[in-house]
């Protein structure tokens, strides 16, 4: 019993879940409109899009790297999606597939460069961030594509079963797919092994280069999917989509207990991290606090989460007698 209890208390999702419940109760009791159907719809919409962004970063954290170009890839895929529908008249699903392919290709580009040159992911994705953003601005001249078909707009703005937005569907698919990938796929195991100890993985017959390339391809695809969902929600192909994804993309996995050095991530924890960020954003709106403060709060939230992880590490190291 106590062992089971301590396992629950130490699980990555426990802390974030407790925060979600307490925050919901507190905010809901002060301001009952927080739990209104309309507000829940807004929350779900934010969670749906942001969790895809967060997973796009989480998978890279799992392999022990970082992807600064998540937002740039998402933005490029978003304007490509809208542009292909407006300029070439492609039907929505076809344009979406093409945009996903662009995201995958951008990820492959990052991964192949990192694997082939051994340059750090930080530097490679910092440079490719500029490349992808530059292509975006070159195509759009910084002007949005407005010609988004009604069907796509409807997908981004209608609900089913009451307050549940349709955009939640692709998000659920992504959650299931990532859980399956990390727990049940050889590639997923390889990703965590490489993140956990690259040389041990290499010497156990795991190809580090191939794993890194695939991980970035997945990250790019997810970023593209988030871009597509953004277009559906905003109803236009805004060139600035993705500009502000970087901080939240790190915040959610870290709040969810991910080890930034790699090898350990939590899908449920990350999802709860996204929910926490959404609740805080929404609470600031409800309490009429300047929404620009969201950035400040997010920054402190990341520091807090990293601090908790560091405390855990120190405890583990003490047990192992390294300190």
């Amino acid at each position: 019993m106590s062992a089971a209890l301590s396992r629950v208390l130490q699980a990555d999702w426990f802390g974030p879940l407790a925060i979600v419940i307490v925050a919901t109760l507190v905010i809901g009791s002060i301001e009952p409109s927080f739990l209104s159907s309309f507000n829940i719809q807004i929350l779900l919409l934010a969670v749906a899009v942001n969790c895809v962004i967060a997973f796009s970063q989480m998978i890279i954290i799992a392999v022990g790297q970082m992807n600064l170009s998540v937002g740039a890839i998402g933005g490029l895929a978003a304007i490509s999606f809208a542009g292909m529908m407006q300029v070439w008249g492609l039907p929505g699903p076809l344009a979406a597939l093409a945009a996903l392919a662009i995201g995958a290709a951008a990820g492959l580009f990052n991964g192949a460069l990192i694997a082939a040159t051994g340059i750090s992911a930080f530097v490679v994705t910092l440079a490719s961030l500029s490349v992808f953003k530059g292509i975006n601005l070159g195509i759009t001249r910084a002007q949005p594509f407005y010609g988004v078909p009604e069907s796509v707009k409807a997908f981004g703005n209608t609900t089913f079963l009451g307050p549940i937005p349709w955009l939640v569907l692709p998000a659920i698919l992504v959650v299931v797919a990532i859980m399956h990938l990390l727990n049940r796929q050889v590639l997923g195991r390889h990703i965590l092994a490489v993140g956990g100890n690259q040389s041990a993985a290499e010497l156990s017959g795991i190809s580090v280069a191939r794993t890194v390339v695939w991980t970035h391809a997945i990250s790019g695809t997810l970023a593209a999917l988030a871009g597509i969902m953004f277009v559906a929600r905003l109803q236009l192909g805004q060139p600035s989509i993705g500009d502000d994804w970087l901080i939240p993309s790190f915040a959610a996995p870290v709040i969810g207990g991910a080890v930034l050095a790699g090898g350990h991530v939590s899908v449920s924890g990350t999802l709860l991290g996204v929910v926490i960020v959404a609740i805080i954003t929404q609470a600031l709106v409800i309490f009429r606090i300047d929404p620009f403060f969201v950035q400040v709060v997010l920054g402190f939230l990341i520091l807090w989460a990293v601090g908790i992880n560091r405390l855990r590490e120190i405890r583990v190291e003490r047990v192992l007698g390294r300190i």
């Binding site: 965590l192 041990a200 993985a201 010497l203």
Partner: peptide
């Protein structure tokens, strides 16, 4: 510690690493 094991992972994951494929 550096080249043989992934210390943060479980016994099952470490011992099974070579046979996943």
């Amino acid at each position: 510690k550096q080249e043989g094991l992934i210390l943060m992972h479980s016994v099952l994951e470490n011992a099974g690493m070579t046979v996943w494929r």
